[in-house]
Write a protein that binds this DNA or RNA. Structure first.
Lengths: 151, 151
DNA sequence: CTTAGTGCAAACCGTTTGCAAATGC
DNA sequence: GCATTTGCAAACGGTTTGCACTAAG
């Protein structure tokens, strides 16, 4: 919260009720909220807040370094906490859309090595592994689900 | 080409001039074409082909396993050859949008290990590393470019 | 001659923008 | 008071869809 107010002040922006509300609702969420989901949650507390303000405030929250934008396969951006949440990547089930978070120090290190080799300066990365979770594999085997993915 | 015709036949679809043309133009491209770029290229050979047909045919090419869809940071899908092109991932410069392709057998192996640990069946993955290429770092140092990225 | 494919225009969906009214500082 | 923010509605950009027409099998 203070980080956010810092960021506002530093950028010559104003602290408003809406911004405070949106940030605190965001901080209460777990996982990966979309703008629309956040909008619905915010509306419960103050129905007068508009869609636009959610988008604009999310941008500020990103700039303040409090959130990370992630995109899975549904075309919409999702936001996860960045502050004091160690970095992770995702296994994404293309059947049920469930997520498994993973972290590999080895992969991170190899990444750094590869970048160094090209004198590339890493700012961020997105490593997404798409496939079928254990559950969905079972369902497909038992004929509950049709195996519809390609290849 | 035969793979594509196979796929059409197998799916009970028809072979058409447009589809053949779009595929062959796609196969002549190098790198990462967007639907719009492909449309422009196709129009040079046959101006009557419509936008829609490009999209629909790209979908078929994907299904046939001849292309892979990749998304960088401009919101549009891009397509790269999949057939007889070994898998790779990308370093993406957020200043000049240039791309460096990389491949790491180690990362691929670790990925497999992680997936196995969760009994997750990998179908595909997308590993994108965003940052600054060597060129753009130099330009920023020399004040040619402003360093505008966040964090 | 029947089924699938085409091109066009309109729809779509997530996100952004222009604007007049409202609010923080 | 002045600049910034707000909510609304309209615009946006990439992609998809409904439709009457055309072409492949």
């Amino acid at each position: 919260m203070e980080i956010f107010h810092e960021h506002l002040k530093r950028s010559g922006l104003k602290r408003t009720e809406q911004r405070d509300l949106i940030l605190s609702v965001f901080l209460e969420t777990e996982g990966h909220v979309s703008a629309e989901e956040l909008y619905e949650l915010v509306k419960k507390r103050d129905p007068s807040v508009g869609f636009t303000t959610i988008y604009r405030t999310l941008k500020l929250i990103l700039e303040a370094g409090l959130a990370r934008e992630v995109r899975f396969n549904d075309g919409r951006a999702r936001y996860e906490h960045e502050y004091k949440h160690e970095h992770h990547d995702h296994l994404i089930c293309i059947q049920c859309n469930c997520l498994i978070e993973f972290y590999s120090a080895d992969i991170e290190r190899i990444q750094e090595e590869i970048a160094a080799q090209y004198q590339f300066k890493i700012i961020d990365h997105s490593h997404r592994i798409f496939g079928l979770c254990a559950e969905c594999q079972k369902k497909i085997q038992h004929g509950v689900l049709r195996n519809t993915y390609h290849h």
